[in-house]
Design a protein around this nucleic acid. Structure first.
Length: 436
RNA sequence: UCCUCAGUAGCUCAAUGGUAGAGCAUUCGGCUGUUAACCGAAGGGUUGUAGGUUCGAGUCCUACCUGAGGAGCCA
């Protein structure tokens, strides 16, 4: 008696059949004796058609009185129709209401405009909207593409700890955790130091997990909790790091274009901007970047780090990500290998996304010489004992090695063309945003 | 932490220092192909908080709270 249950995404394969679709009422347009409930089930949207003369009185009245986001199981015959948004619609035959949202407390997010604050307060519900849905699917695709790239290129996933006993880089502010008897612990700001250990064990590795920065940053590019993928390779130089970063981005963009075009179109993304993401990416040195910026009127002097406006200025002449390498050592972390021909610069590279989306990759070659590492740790005033295991890696078979970190949210934001990273993660954590 | 801007109905926003308004949402009525449907009607307010100026403050001043954008720092 009961019709087969399908999802909206499967509707095309069931034309002419009577099926049941469980879902939620996204919206409804009424026109007297004919109503058009718009059904949402997580896989898509489908317009249903309920005609009064074709239905028992009670069924029609039940449908007509439904409220937004009520949960239900709609049963009817699937039919192709150009007038419907998804191309298919359902002639309703019966309905089972699971929960009717009471009109005394209606669903707060209406099909009209809302402000950011209101939407963020209702993030748990906002996720149901088409835009947020599309972004989440692109994020899923990005993560899958990134994992597939590494998995099929000889990398082993070895995840690194979230609780760490000391700062990885010594600069950024960390979240302190008072629990362990041993010592104070901190939430990780990078898995990189541990990656170096696993790279010496497995050759090529990556870790992929959440990262925490207690910075008082309040911009559209910052989250206090964000996800980062970090590859690390033994026997690798700066050039290898640059090549892998470029390949990873090209592979990822290609996969999103292959599998998530409907989502990108819904987001209004200019696909030609993504189709332009091909090898080779432009490569310039920090020295050249400073000259370019100065010629464009920036106040930057050699030795200073780029601000957000500098990054935008630098990237606006290119249609693909820009690789900038050989930064002054003093603005990079202690573990970066200095250029032996120019010790004042580090073999570090940042990848700046086009269209003002900023730095999405940062990495480089690491110090592999034991004496140099000891000196760097001392110069930075870092606690030697906390880094003993890290120094061990240089005592027992040290090799040149390198890697990078890519911020998933910034990457998704760039690919989607979203201004603010807060929409690229389900529940963003920011300086003034802990709930929901 | 600093700078700039904002806070009025559930939501998005109006309102020369002079009666608190509209659209959406909700309720009621109408409409058999709607596409953020449309048409008519109703209910809905301690204008972020506390002071102050004024005959009179949503509007001007001070402080605070909340949020947004940016700076610094970073992915």
């Amino acid at each position: 008696m009961s019709a087969p249950r399908i999802t909206i995404a499967e509707a095309a394969r069931h034309v002419g059949e009577t099926v049941s679709v469980p879902g939620w009422l996204y919206n409804m347009r009424k026109s007297g004796k004919i109503v058009f409930p718009l059904l949402r089930d997580g896989t898509g949207l489908m317009q249903c058609v309920a005609v009064k003369s074709a239905l028992p009185e009670a069924v029609f009245e039940t449908i007509k009185d439904l409220t937004q986001e009520s949960s239900l199981i709609m049963t009817g015959k699937i039919r192709a129709d150009e007038r419907a948004a998804g191309g298919y619609e359902m002639d309703v035959e019966s309905i089972e209401v699971i929960q009717r949202v009471p009109e005394s407390d209606p669903y707060p997010i209406t099909p009209k405009e809302h402000g950011v604050d209101f939407l963020m307060d209702h993030r748990h519900l906002w996720l149901r909207s088409q835009h947020q849905h599309a972004i989440a699917r692109v994020r899923h695709e990005v993560i899958k593409a990134v994992r597939d790239y590494f998995d099929s290129n000889g990398f082993t996933l070895v995840d690194t700890p979230i609780f760490t006993p000391a700062a990885c880089e010594g600069t950024t502010t960390l979240f302190e955790v008072n629990y362990f008897d041993d010592d104070k612990a901190y939430l990780t700001q990078s898995g990189q130091l541990y990656n170096e250990a696993t790279a010496m064990a497995f050759g090529k590795v990556y870790c992929f997990g959440p990262t925490f920065r207690a910075e008082k940053s309040k911009t559209r590019r910052h989250l206090t909790e964000f996800w980062m993928v970090e590859p690390e390779m033994a026997f690798a130089t700066l050039e290898d790091v640059k090549r892998v970063g470029e390949e990873l981005l090209i592979h990822t963009v290609k996969r999103v274009l292959e599998n998530r075009q409907p989502e990108l179109k819904l987001l209004g993304r200019d696909l030609s901007k993504l189709q332009a993401i091909q090898a080779p990416f432009p490569r310039i040195s920090y020295d050249e970047a400073v000259k370019i910026l100065q010629s464009k009127g920036s106040e930057i002097k050699w030795g200073g780090d780029f601000g957000n406006t500098d990054e935008t200025l630098l990237t606006q002449d290119y249609d693909r990500p820009l690789l900038v390498d050989r930064y002054p050592s003093h603005i990079k972390a202690f573990y970066f290998q200095p250029d032996l021909e120019r010790p004042e610069v580090a073999l570090a590279v940042d990848v700046l996304a086009p269209e003002g989306h900023g730095e999405i990759i940062g990495g480089g070659q690491r110090v592999h010489d034991p004496d140099l590492l000891l000196k760097r740790i001392q110069d930075e005033g870092l606690p030697m004992d906390a880094f003993q295991w890290y120094i061990d890696l240089r005592k027992y078979g040290t090799v040149p090695h390198g890697g990078f970190g890519m911020g998933i949210e910034r990457c998704v934001g760039w690919i989607c063309g979203i201004e603010h990273v807060r929409e690229t993660i389900a529940f963003p954590r920011m300086l003034y945003r802990l709930r929901p």
